[in-house]
């Protein structure tokens, strides 16, 4: 009843609310690191094959041999008991490493993580990933515009993609 009586008043209130929320968000500094909210590459992370994920994440690039990367996964000899937390380690002596991506071939969404480095960061980079089943794990390093790709096989006793 009152709603119908004065629709203009409603929209005025609505407008006032959204404007003040926006002002609040802006003033709280949430929007300052502007890439923080928007730039999660969902195409790459929801891709279902390694090729699609790589293409979405890194685009076309010249692929070089991955021998200059040292990539370790699991406890030696590349055997993981629990797929829910598999340690990975990427080392490299390559100069100008821009990005590291770690992919698990047989996971529902292969791309596990993508790391953007600045010249202040030095390798090794270590982390933990989930591996659903026995699979190939791929590390991609982009340095000086080239892609260095290397992979390791891993066997898991308990799948870890729950």
């Amino acid at each position: 009843m009152t709603n119908q009586a004065d629709p203009r008043r409603r929209s005025l209130i609505k407008g006032a609310i959204s404007a003040s929320t926006l002002a609040l968000v802006a003033s709280s500094g949430l929007l300052l690191p502007r890439r923080l909210l928007a730039h999660w590459p969902s195409d790459a992370f929801t891709a279902e094959t390694v090729e699609d994920a790589l293409l979405a994440l890194l685009g076309e690039a010249e692929v070089a041999d991955g021998k200059q990367i040292s990539f370790k996964i699991g406890a030696p000899p590349s055997y993981a008991v629990n797929g829910a937390s598999v340690p990975v380690e990427v080392r490299s002596d390559l100069p100008n490493v821009e990005r590291i991506a770690i992919l698990v071939d047989k996971n529902p969404n292969p791309l596990a993580m993508s790391v953007d480095l600045t010249p202040d960061v030095a390798l090794p980079f270590k982390s933990m990933i989930k591996v659903a089943e026995d699979s190939e794990v791929i590390a991609v390093v982009r340095a000086d515009g080239k892609l260095y790709i290397t992979s390791r096989d891993i066997a898991v006793d308990i799948g870890g993609c729950a």
Binding site: A112, V115, V121, L123, S127
Partner: peptide, 21 residues
């Protein structure tokens, strides 16, 4: 200095280790 984008395949209670020059 560093940005990490994670997908769902990052382990529970994520752990990261890296070096800064």
């Amino acid at each position: 200095v560093l940005t990490i984008k994670c997908g769902t395949a990052t382990a529970r209670n994520p752990y990261f280790s890296f070096q800064l020059t």
